[in-house]
Amino acid sequence: MSDGVEFSALELDALQETMNVGFGQAAASLSEVIDMQVVLSVPKVAMIANEGIAAFVRSEIQDPAAFCMVEQFFFGRFSGTSFLLLPENEGRKLVDLFGAQPDPEFAGESLDALERDIVVEIGNIIIGACVGKIAEMLKDVVCYHPPRYLAGPVDQELINRHIRPGGGLALVFKTVFKFERQDVLGFLFLVTGDDTASWLKKAVDEMLEGLL
């Protein structure tokens, strides 16, 4: 981090477990809305140089042109940027998840708009529940900017444009999820700002003191 904060393996494990609980909450919130199980993977937390974040995100997806992104900033002592990546060409499946119907009078345009709305809504639910639960576990409260839809391709240029500039290292939380039956894969990344690192380390240490 810019101020020299480093995380031990135990602290990173604690952050990963916190993300696990946070995303579990997010999946439960979403599955209630769509009445479908969200298959979770084990989250990962990594310290990455700011200039390497875009390459890290890009390396996780095979075809950047196939994905769109929902971006949402969160603010508190726990603050940063969240990126939810969903397949852009699977919009119809996502619309089906919500049981929504486009306006038949404006079929093509309406379906595109509906797909975008649904992607943003999925992002809103997942990011809000996940970030909110992590903040709660770390005894913080966060506020959010409205989520924003960004059309693909999700390449390094797009990601770089939406990461706060700055030197040093950032903490990147990553999880992959899949909608049961629809075979739609999504990714969630949380990238914390440099100013969050010191507080995050202190909060995690306090949490560990209470647990161990």
């Binding site: 696990n20 609980v21 995303f23 579990g24 909450q25 999946a27 439960a28 599955s31 209630e32 479908m36 199980q37 969200v38 979770l40 049961e180």
Partner: peptide, 9 residues
Amino acid sequence: VTADIQAKT
């Protein structure tokens, strides 16, 4: 002991 608290899980 789980974080996955979805009803179906």
